[in-house]
């Protein structure tokens, strides 16, 4: 555990446990470890990891006999002091992506901005190993850490009204995948035929926070075959 953890009362039923205020892969590793530990030890508290913080949401009535925030904070501190018993290995997912063309309409622009050619952008994007820092924006949308710093590009000045489901995108130093057709301002470099979120499935989200992710380039034919096998 890192030395400094801050607690902040957010609402009647919520505390924020903060490790820092930066987007940083090491801070996020602390967040994922703390989330796993707290879920194990405080099953009655909902733990929601973000980049550098964990939201603890609880029913204040459940913690009767004193200030519920103080009780949850004390319980969380006690839980985090004990080393976790089980450290489950993170899931590793390989996401097939058809880069460029109609699937990645901003690839050329991204390449120009990065002073690379399109193939070099694809090489760098597929070479890196990413971690799912958190899910948000829409159900199943993964915010991925680990983008090659040379691929960082500003968001679009005119956000799109409809970004197609499966679009793989770069926004600033982050990369992510749109689970469904949504408005969005990130730069689209490719598309995956995989279904990211299905509310009716036993595990609705393909990704969970803490997962390891790699991208693998596929061509148009492979995209079509995989899309047919994974109907949305």
């Amino acid at each position: 555990m890192p030395p400094a953890i801050q607690f902040e009362a957010l609402a009647d039923d919520a505390l924020l446990l903060r490790f820092g205020e930066r987007i940083d892969i090491e801070l996020n590793a602390c967040v994922q470890a703390a989330t796993a530990c707290l879920r194990q030890r405080l099953p009655q508290v909902e733990c929601v990891p973000a980049y550098a913080s964990v939201l603890l949401r609880f029913d204040p009535q459940h913690w009767s006999g004193g200030d519920p925030h103080r009780q949850v904070q004390a319980a969380a501190c006690a839980a985090l002091e004990e080393p976790s018993l089980v450290t489950a290995a993170p899931h590793e997912l390989v996401i097939p992506v058809c880069y460029g063309g109609e699937h990645g309409p901003d690839l050329a622009e991204v390449a120009a901005h990065c002073r690379l050619d399109a193939d070099a952008v694809i090489d760098r994007h597929t070479a890196a190993s990413y971690r799912v820092a958190m899910l948000g924006f829409a159900p199943g949308f993964p915010y991925l850490l680990g983008l090659d710093p040379q691929l960082a590009v500003p968001r679009r000045t005119d956000p799109r009204q409809r970004v197609p489901a499966g679009s793989v995108a770069i926004g600033g130093s982050q990369t992510g995948i749109y689970p469904e057709t949504l408005p969005g301002g990130w730069q689209l470099i490719g598309c995956t035929p995989l279904l990211l979120f299905d509310i009716t499935a036993n595990t609705p989200s393909l990704f969970t926070p803490g997962d390891r992710v790699r991208f693998e380039a596929i061509d148009e034919d492979q995209f079509r075959d995989l899309a047919a096998a994974n109907p949305a």
Binding site: A11, L16, E21, R22, Y51, A52, S53, L55, R57
Partner: peptide
């Protein structure tokens, strides 16, 4: 300049 954190009803 803030990084994304959990949001809640009532905020």
């Amino acid at each position: 300049e803030l990084i994304s954190e959990a949001a809640l009803p009532g905020t």
